[in-house]
Design a protein around this nucleic acid. Structure first.
Lengths: 330, 330
DNA sequence: CGGCGGTGCCGGATCGTTCCGGCATGCCGG
DNA sequence: CCGGCATGCCGGAACGATCCGGCACCGCCG
C-alpha cells in the first residue's frame, strides 16, 4: 500500500552487513557473532521486515501451505465444517497455512493452488475433483476412504463398531424392528453403514427396512422419508438416522404422528451435533469427533510432508456413542 | 514426488522455442504465431506443465490469495462457518484462493501469511489479532464493523431494522414484557442489538429485561440464563434470543417450565439456523444470510484489490425475518 | 534499390531469499 | 615463525516466471 516493503537487503544495509549475514542472523544459520545477530534483529524490527513468502517458497520449493478439500454437497453439513475447523486449529499449531479448495475452484482452467499436500475429507466415490487432486502427485491424507491405486495417509474411525453398538443398544431397549434412514453409498462412511446394518439384521434375523435420500437432502426430504417408513412398516419401533441433521426431523415427524420418542419409538443418530443434546427429548447419537478428525488429518499430513511418517500411514479416530433420552426413555 | 516438475523452460525446449516465447504463448501476451502457440500448448499439456505459483507471485508481487479471519470464539458458531463457506464459493468464482487465518496462526513468531487482502468477520472490539492484521497495511474488508482509523471496505446489514421488526412483531402478537437474552457487546452486532432493544423499550415505555452471557457460551449457560429471567420476572411473555443456538435452549427450558411456546410465551431468534425451522414449534428468526455475507465480502475485497472499488466502499447485506410458529401460534 | 513498418521470436534482467563455497583474520601449538 | 584451524563474514548463483527491449527477417512502397 504505502511504500515498498523492506527486503532482507534493506535490513542488511541498515545493520551494516551483507544480505547473507542478515539472513543467517535472522534464520539462526551459519556463523554469526552475537553482536551482529542483535544488530540485524534490531534493524529488522525497526524496518518492520517480513520475509517475502513467495521468494522463500521459490527457493525452498515448498509453500508452507496445505490444501483441504471437501465435496461440494458437504459444504452445508455442519459435520464437515467442524472438521475443517479442527484442521485449521491443528494447522495453526503446526505452523502451516491452509487453503480450502472448493470444487468450484478447480472447475475452470485455472491451475490448482500450489500446496505441499492435500487433505481429502471423505471423498465421494466418483468425485472428479478428488481425482484431479490425486493426480497432482502430492502427499495426500484422506478422512475415511483409502484409494486403492494411490498411496495416501488415512484417518479413519471404527464406524462399524459404533453402528453395531447403536443397533445392539436399540435391540436391548426393546426394539424389534429398527428402520434405517440411510445416507447414500457415495461416501465410504455411508457405504459401510449400509453394509453393517444389513449384516446386523441378517444376524438378528430381522427384516431390514432401509430408506435412502440423496446426500445433502433438505429437511423436507427426511420428513417425507420418515412418513414413508411409517406407512410401509407401521411396526417400526426405532429409527437409525444416518444423514447429519436428519434425526431432528425424524423425531419431529414421529411426535406429530402421535408417537412418543424414547417411549414407544426410539431414535438414534449416526452423527451427533450440538442441537441433538437440546431437542426434546435429547437424541442418542455417535459423536464423530469432527474437530479431532480434522486435527488428526493435518497432523498426519504434516508428518508425511516432513518425512516423519510413511505416505500410506493410517491413524485411528476415536468415536463414541452419546446415550440420551431418545433411546433411554425419560 | 516422482521427479522434478516441468518448468516453462522444459516446455520451451520441447516446443523448440525460447522460454519467453513459451510464456507469451501460454499467457496470450506478446506476438506469437498461431502455429507456435499450438505447439507450445501441446508441449505444456504433454509435460503436464503447471506454472510455479511462487515464482509467479515473486515476479508479480501478488499472491492471488486472500486471507479470512474470524475471531477465536466464533469458530464453534455455525453462522460464521457458513459465512466462511459463502466466502469460499465466491472466491472460487473470482479465481482467488483463500487462506483461513486462525487466531492461533498469528499467535507465534511466525510471519503472517502473505495475502493480497484480508477479510475480518465481525471483528471483536479488542481483538489483538485483528489489530495485527490491520497493521499489515493491506486492503481490508470487514463484515459489520468499520474501524475508525483505517480505511476498510465494509459489508453490513440493517440489524437495527430487523431487530425492531422482531420486537414490533412480538408486541403485535400480544407481548407486553419481552426479555432479551443478549450477546455481549464485543461484536458490533451485539452492541447494536443492545442499543436497539433499550431504545425500543424506552419508546414503548416497557421495562427492559436483559440477561447476557459471554460469547460462545454453551447450552447450559443459556438454559440457566432463561431460568434466571423466569425467576426474576415471571411476567416475561416473550424472549428475544441473541446468541446463535440459544433459541433452541430457551424454548426447551420454557417447555420444561410448563410454558407453551407460541401460545403463552413467544420466542424469536436473532440468528436463524436450519435447526430452527424443525424444532417444535419452529422458531421465528432473522435470516442473516451468512453465505451471502461471505460472498459479498470476497467480491468487495477482490474489487478493491483490482482497483475497481474504493478501499472504503460500503456494501449492504439484505437480511430478512422468517416468521414461524414460535411467535405465530400453531 | 533503399528505407520503413510489421511480425515473430529471443536474451537478459528482475523479483527476494537462501545456500554453497571461499576469503580474511586471529589464535594456538609445535 | 609458520602451518593449521576456527571464526565471522561475504559474493555469486539458483529457484521459475515474466517483462522490456531488441534483433532479424520479410514485404511493400516510393
Amino acid at each position: 500500500m504505502s511504500r515498498r516493503a523492506a527486503t532482507i537487503v534493506d535490513v542488511a544495509k541498515r545493520a551494516g552487513v551483507s544480505r547473507t549475514t542478515a539472513s543467517d542472523a535472522l534464520r539462526g544459520h551459519g556463523r554469526v557473532s552475537e553482536g551482529t545477530r542483535v544488530a540485524v534483529e534490531q534493524a529488522a524490527a525497526e524496518l518492520g521486515y517480513r520475509p517475502n513468502t513467495a521468494a522463500r517458497s521459490l527457493r525452498a520449493a515448498t509453500t508452507g501451505t496445505i490444501g483441504i478439500h471437501l465435496p461440494e454437497a458437504m459444504t452445508r453439513i455442519d459435520y464437515y465444517l467442524q472438521t475443517v475447523y479442527g484442521a485449521l486449529e491443528q494447522a495453526g499449531a503446526d505452523e502451516v497455512d491452509v487453503t480450502v479448495i472448493t470444487s468450484r475452484r478447480l472447475a475452470g482452467e485455472q491451475p490448482p493452488p500450489s500446496v505441499d499436500g492435500i487433505i481429502l475429507l471423505d471423498p465421494l466415490a466418483d468425485d472428479p475433483v478428488a481425482e484431479r487432486l490425486l493426480a497432482l502427485d502430492l502427499p495426500i491424507v484422506t478422512l475415511e476412504r483409502a484409494f486403492g491405486e494411490v498411496a495416501t495417509g488415512v484417518v479413519s474411525a471404527d464406524h462399524e463398531g459404533a453402528i453395531r453398538e447403536l443397533l445392539d443398544h436399540l435391540a436391548s431397549r426393546g426394539s424389534a424392528a429398527p428402520a434405517f434412514l440411510a445416507s447414500p453409498a457415495v461416501t465410504d462412511w455411508g457405504t459401510r453403514a449400509q453394509v453393517v446394518y444389513s449384516a446386523w439384521c441378517r444376524e438378528q434375523r430381522i427384516q431390514p427396512t432401509i430408506v435412502e435420500r440423496p446426500f445433502g437432502s433438505d429437511s423436507a426430504a427426511y420428513a417425507e422419508a420418515t412418513r414413508e417408513v411409517l406407512a410401509a412398516r407401521p411396526q417400526t419401533d426405532a429409527f437409525l438416522c444416518g444423514p447429519d441433521g436428519s434425526a431432528i426431523v425424524v423425531a419431529d415427524v414421529l411426535q406429530d404422528a402421535g408417537r412418543v420418542v424414547g417411549e414407544d419409538v426410539l431414535v438414534a443418530a449416526m452423527v451427533d451435533s450440538p442441537a441433538l443434546a437440546y431437542t426434546d427429548p435429547p437424541v442418542t447419537a455417535v459423536d464423530l469427533a469432527p474437530r479431532a478428525a480434522g486435527a488428526l488429518c493435518v497432523e498426519l499430513l504434516v508428518r508425511i510432508i516432513r518425512g516423519e511418517a510413511r505416505p500410506d500411514a493410517s491413524v485411528p479416530l476415536p468415536i463414541e456413542v452419546r446415550y440420551r433420552a431418545s433411546t433411554l426413555g425419560r
